[in-house]
Design a binder for these strands. Structure first.
Lengths: 351, 351
DNA sequence: TTGAAAGCGCTAACAA
DNA sequence: TTGTTAGCGCTTTCAA
């Protein structure tokens, strides 16, 4: 009984709608695009015709004349291509953080009718392919997620003249480029003050990778804050923001400094890996070792005990990236405003 | 000294290239599209002109005439919109699994010059918006990631006539629709045989959500296999494929059946949550309780001890989805071939 | 306020 | 093998 509702017929065009409504193509176009200069009667006639025909605008045709793509690219830039044996270990796509960013972007983009293109750049070839794709205006703007400090992409993108927003502050601030970040140093300070406030005296940190701004900033911020609090020589072990990396870093830390009673772990995911190591080594959390994480991701809740952590409003920040981009599209002038969010400390049970 | 290489000039068109090369637009078009019927000399002339002018084809114009978008949509379908307070808890985007799928798709799509549009459907409004977007041919095909069994989207998508591939078998096999899956039941059988082979006799399982095919299949497969092995009454506790859900399910299991000596956990992520619960309750893994997971995701390596698990080749499966789609685009005939991958058991230290 | 008409950049008949 | 030409569906002057 399910009659085929759409035999392979020619799609409905503006012309068809115009005919049904008894007006010109131009008028239909005006109605579709919400122009104010249309008579109310004609407008409703057109709207009915649109409904009756099931018309949906052809984006390609529209793009061709407006020179807008109504889409933006989310570019994920990684240092190098993965190996066959370790397909996605430690890759950005598999980090839950990535998903939160996508969600935040979509929050703003969907209501605006803007599509999100997902693009990956992980070697010179793919980078230049990417840039030439972007140059021809197939997207209106770019959100760049870069995993490493020496990434040439921020520079390349600014040269295309496309509105671009970075997730996290750029390393080389040479070119003026908009970005959205959390105040990493302030976040680290929150952690330092909390640990010291708890009375901990042998405090260490598991840092993120030091070739990433976020890794550097959290470590520097923590060091600076601890120095201000009277401890200028905080021990740090470098991790890589992954769970496995967190476990590994904690093993090293404990081997070299078994006496610690507090640790700031620069990402919740690393903390998730590090906690079991602490238990294996006979430490109770928070009794023997107080732990403060960073991110307030789902990993913080998955920790046992649940993690006291520095909250970074990832979804809001991603939404702000989209907003920044949309505003840049609106205005012709090339402004590059950035946004830095304030972190907060979320108290749970690990410290 | 960095002279602005691209002042806001008019983009290079086919016409420009033709002029530079001293040929017609059509010839340039042929070269660009790799037609064989072009004289070698002219071809090189055109190629040089392309290089000299920095020409990149305008996709909108091409789409308009070819009626191909050279892009496909990755549609993520969730049951309902998230709340403000729990932005992305348990959402598909934040599952590392999602990232692996994206990676596998891109592996095939990138070399083919096909773009990936990321689209989210999480309520009736967004679903119908999505369908009308897709209907007008803005993408050539769809990969659907659906999180729930009663999702109307598979049905809606087949009705659009767009080539579609599902990740995982569809629930209602009413409409013939292509899908890629792992043989879930065979995977569960692998786990059952391994646990029994280890000499475990009080075996239980933490299942996935039973409103998802993957959840159902793994549980059914495990029950069937255990029955064949002489244990028709396996205890099961329903989880939700998340880490927190795994911890919670394990707590319930232990409370009701403290005597278990083996457990099949239907996803590595749940195992990651469940292991610490076992330790807290004084069980050693694998000595007291042998644990087998499912997925062979990074979570399996993050477990301590590393997880013995049923491997599901996610990246390959995603690549196959893209391949299936590409092949459907090539041929006019509406065929809906599917692919079911064989799982393997990866032996590590938890069982 | 509305309509007629001119393209946007490209591909694909069709002719040569 | 190459060039000419006619659109693809839409927006946007320009006139009316």
């Amino acid at each position: 009984m399910t009659a085929d509702p759409a035999p392979p017929t020619r799609p409905v065009t503006l012309e068809d709608v115009a005919q049904v409504a008894g007006v010109s193509r131009a008028t239909v176009s005006r109605v579709i695009n919400g122009a104010q200069t249309v008579d109310a009667a004609l407008r409703t006639a057109v709207e009915q015709a649109v409904a009756a025909t099931g018309y949906v605008p052809n984006r390609a045709a529209r793009s061709l004349v407006t020179r807008r793509a109504d889409s933006i690219a989310l570019v994920v830039s990684e240092r190098e291509q993965r190996t066959v044996s370790e397909p996605f270990v430690g890759r950005m796509f598999t980090d839950p953080h990535f998903g939160r960013i996508v969600g935040g972007l979509l929050d703003v983009l969907r209501p605006a009718g803007i599509q999100l293109l997902l693009m990956l750049a992980d070697d010179d070839a793919s980078r230049s392919q990417l840039v030439s794709f972007l140059r021809q205006g197939h997207v209106d703007g770019v959100v760049l997620l870069s995993s490493h400090a020496d990434d040439p992409l921020p520079e390349l993108l600014t040269r295309t003249g496309l509105p671009t927003v970075l997730a996290g502050r750029p390393t080389r601030s040479a070119a003026p480029i908009a970005y959205v970040d959390v105040d990493q140093q302030a976040g680290a300070r929150l952690a330092a003050e909390h640990l010291v406030g708890l009375g901990r005296r042998r405090i260490a940190t598991l840092s993120g990778p030091l070739d990433m701004p976020a890794g550097q900033d959290r470590l520097n911020g923590f060091r600076t804050a601890m120095a201000a609090l009277g401890d200028p020589d905080v021990v740090s072990v470098e991790g890589d923001f992954t769970q496995a990396g967190g476990a590994e870093a904690m093993k090293r830390l404990l081997a070299e400094h078994p006496g610690i009673d507090g640790v700031f772990i620069a990402s919740d995911l690393m903390a998730l890996g590090a906690l079991p190591v602490l238990y294996r080594e006979g430490r109770r959390v928070p009794e023997d070792v107080a732990v403060v994480g960073f991110d307030d991701s789902s990993a913080a809740l998955a920790c046992d005990p649940q993690l006291t952590t520095v909250r970074q409003p990832v979804e809001e920040m991603a939404a702000e990236m989209a907003g920044l981009l949309l505003r840049q599209l609106g205005e012709a002038g090339r402004s590059t405003p950035s946004a830095v969010f304030r972190p907060t400390l979320v108290l749970r049970h690990s410290a």
